[in-house]
Design a protein around this nucleic acid. Structure first.
Length: 642
DNA sequence: GCAAGGTC
């Protein structure tokens, strides 16, 4: 019974202490049969790199049933035990959720039944080869270590793997590796501190999946079938989907568009004073800023012109700093990518994912913008001293020590995004995103830029005006952070000037401006603020609403609603529901968080949410003519009677 | 022909 001897050495599932406590009592590891361990990561790249790190490049590659998911074999010690390790992977979720085959047909049932009909979790055909590999390997294994990403979905994927493996090998001992970057220290630490997978976190994902499916399918079929029938010339072949993320995404664009349409400009007047001195034209701003009463503004202007001599009241200089950026989280990466690299959020995240799996950067999906105390930043900066582009700058940082500003957000899982390895052979978008991440990292651990701001206050016959100048003294982080601009604004020295005659005193009319149309970066900020989608999906939801013609792009990067998008928003608004507002999704998100933390029971949350949407659905079905009417208005077409 | 979330 060699196997059982080996097993006796193995501790029961669970605590770290048990390993420490039992180890001295066991047989010497060298005399023990190696334990067979199956390790499963979330994707092939991760499996390959984790295996390479643990085995110090000595792993052997084998084929599995899936040609994309290889097996990597090596021997190593885990908790003082000799282990024969097999490392393989899934490709994201192994299972999909759907209604039974009969109800997948659109006309098979009333859409309202989709709130109650049974759903099933099934391995889709394209994932079957991966499942077969797992089953074959699990039969041979004694331990299963889950190496999926350490986030909510990763925990759920972990349980999909566990369920498949346990079904063929009930005696498997299960462990969870916790890590947030694929580097030797991080992976080694994970192996030395194996824990248990978190069932609650996984259950929260099950709740989300089921709700998204039921609600999405019910409303999508309902509104698509209704409107195709009512507007056959314009919508006959249109898919009019509803989703808990896509609708609010569209809603933000509609809301901004309407705010602009309904904007009523207001006229104002302001006095501007110019002083031309030594080729510099200094503009002084009115301390009253602007007045909405023309007569009043006119009379102040007259007062100035009565005695148009400016008395310099003071000319003061004080230090001014421009703050270095905060440590980078995912949303910041997406926004910087859109604004500074002109890449869509989708492209930025694809590149970042690739950089992560190759070990160049830490996990790119993080909500944390404060570096944890345990993370030693010095070696990370040292690595970058070898790069031609910013090596000297990195060297400079080491002299006064890395010095990040603390942000305010932490997901307690992953540190801010930072480089972990020197760039090598990168090209295209990966190279550009890597550069952005390194420059941002070095900037955020360096020093604020320092300048000197000069303010000059003047008085013209009782009216006060002010002008500002700026001299940049030390560029500091700006040396490396080419994405921020801060430039000198010249202003002459007014200390010696007591009075002067302005070259111009204008009364300038103006009017208040509407807000701007949203850009993709603005939209991502709003989605993030309201908890719509995840870091990984913001970009995809934007793509979806574009492809449904719910929104479109104008002037290269301005988002505007399409007629059908605005009509759907208006239709549901007329019923008094906030389908296109973020509140519904935000409520669910709060419940899911509570499930993860153990506050609420997953089945209770699921029942409540289904009931809530079912009653909304019933009202929508009763008042569906309100949607017809809104569509008729925007499509300029009379709804058909049958 | 539906969702959102993984990943390719």
């Amino acid at each position: 019974m060699l196997i059982s001897l080996g097993r006796r050495v193995v501790t029961p599932p669970g605590s770290r202490q048990s390993f420490v406590g039992l180890r001295p009592l066991t047989v010497h590891p060298a005399t023990t049969m190696p334990i067979k361990v199956l390790n499963v990561a979330e994707k092939n790249d991760a499996a390959k790199n984790i295996a390479a790190l643990i085995s110090h490049g000595q792993s052997l590659r084998r084929e599995g049933f899936s040609k994309f998911n290889k097996l990597y074999e090596f021997r190593c010690q885990v908790q003082g035990q000799n282990c024969d390790m097999t490392m393989t992977s899934v490709s994201g979720h192994l299972m999909g959720l759907d209604f039974g085959p009969h109800y997948r047909k659109w006309y098979s049932c009333q859409p309202s039944q989709l709130f109650d009909l049974p759903v099933e979790k099934k391995c889709p055909d394209n994932m079957l080869p991966i499942k077969r590999t797992l089953e074959r390997e699990a039969k041979k294994a004694q331990w299963l270590i889950i190496w999926t990403d350490c986030d909510r979905e990763g925990e759920n994927i972990g349980f999909e793997v566990i369920d498949v493996c346990r079904a063929v090998k009930p005696s498997l001992k299960i462990f969870r590796a916790t890590f947030s970057e694929i580097t030797l220290p991080s992976v080694t630490r994970a192996l030395e501190n194996l824990g248990q997978p978190n069932l609650r976190v996984s259950q929260a994902v099950d709740v989300r999946q089921e709700l998204d499916l039921r609600i999405g399918a019910a409303f999508t079929r309902f509104q698509t079938m209704r409107l195709q029938k009512k507007f056959p010339t314009k919508l006959a072949n249109k898919l009019l989907s509803y989703g808990s993320c896509q609708f609010p995404t569209m809603g933000f664009v509609v809301e901004r568009y309407k705010a602009i349409e309904n904007f009523v400009p207001e006229a104002f007047w302001k006095i501007r004073v110019f002083h031309k001195i030594d080729d510099v034209n200094v503009e002084f701003h009115w301390r009253r800023l602007r007045l909405f009463d023309e007569t009043a503004a006119q009379s102040y202007h007259d007062v100035c012109l009565e005695n148009p001599i400016a008395k310099v009241e003071d000319c003061k200089s004080k230090p001014k700093s421009k703050w270095r950026p905060l440590p980078m989280d995912t949303v910041e990466l997406e926004k910087l990518g859109a604004r500074k690299l002109k890449l869509s959020a989708k492209v930025v995240m694809q590149a970042a994912e690739k950089l992560y799996t190759q070990g160049f950067i830490s996990y790119p999906r993080t909500e944390t913008n404060i570096f944890p105390k345990e993370l030693n930043l010095r070696p990370l900066v040292e690595i970058q001293t070898r790069d031609q582009r910013w090596g000297d700058f990195a060297g400079g940082i080491l002299q006064h020590g890395p010095n990040p500003r603390p942000g305010k957000k932490s997901d307690q899982a992953h540190p801010p995004i930072h480089p972990t390895k020197l760039a090598a052979n990168l090209s295209g978008n990966e190279a550009r995103v890597y550069e952005l991440i390194v420059r941002h990292f070095l900037a955020c651990v360096s020093q604020d830029a320092l300048g000197k701001e000069t303010t000059v206050n003047i008085d013209i016959n009782g009216e006060k005006f002010i002008a500002h100048g700026l001299t940049v003294v030390q560029r500091n982080y700006l040396e490396i952070y080419i994405y921020d601009k801060w430039s000198d604004k010249e202003i002459p020295d007014y200390v010696q000037i007591h009075t002067f005659e302005p070259s111009q005193i204008d009364l300038t009319p103006g009017h208040t401006q509407p807000p701007n149309l949203l850009t993709e970066a603005d939209l991502i900020s709003l989605m993030d603020k309201h908890g719509i989608g995840t870091d990984a999906t913001h970009a995809e939801h934007i793509e979806t609403v574009k492809s449904r013609d719910y929104i479109g792009v104008q002037d290269r990067d301005k988002l505007v609603p399409g007629v059908i998008g605005i009509a759907l928003c208006d239709g549901y608004d007329a019923m008094g529901f906030e389908m296109s507002k973020p509140n519904l999704r935000a409520g669910l998100e709060a419940d899911l968080k509570s499930v993860c933390e153990g506050g609420r029971q997953p089945d209770v949350v699921l029942r409540e949410q289904i009931a809530k949407y079912k009653s909304l659905f019933q009202i929508a079905a009763q008042q569906v003519t309100k949607i017809d009417e809104a569509c008729a208005r925007y499509l300029n077409e009379v709804p058909q009677n049958q």
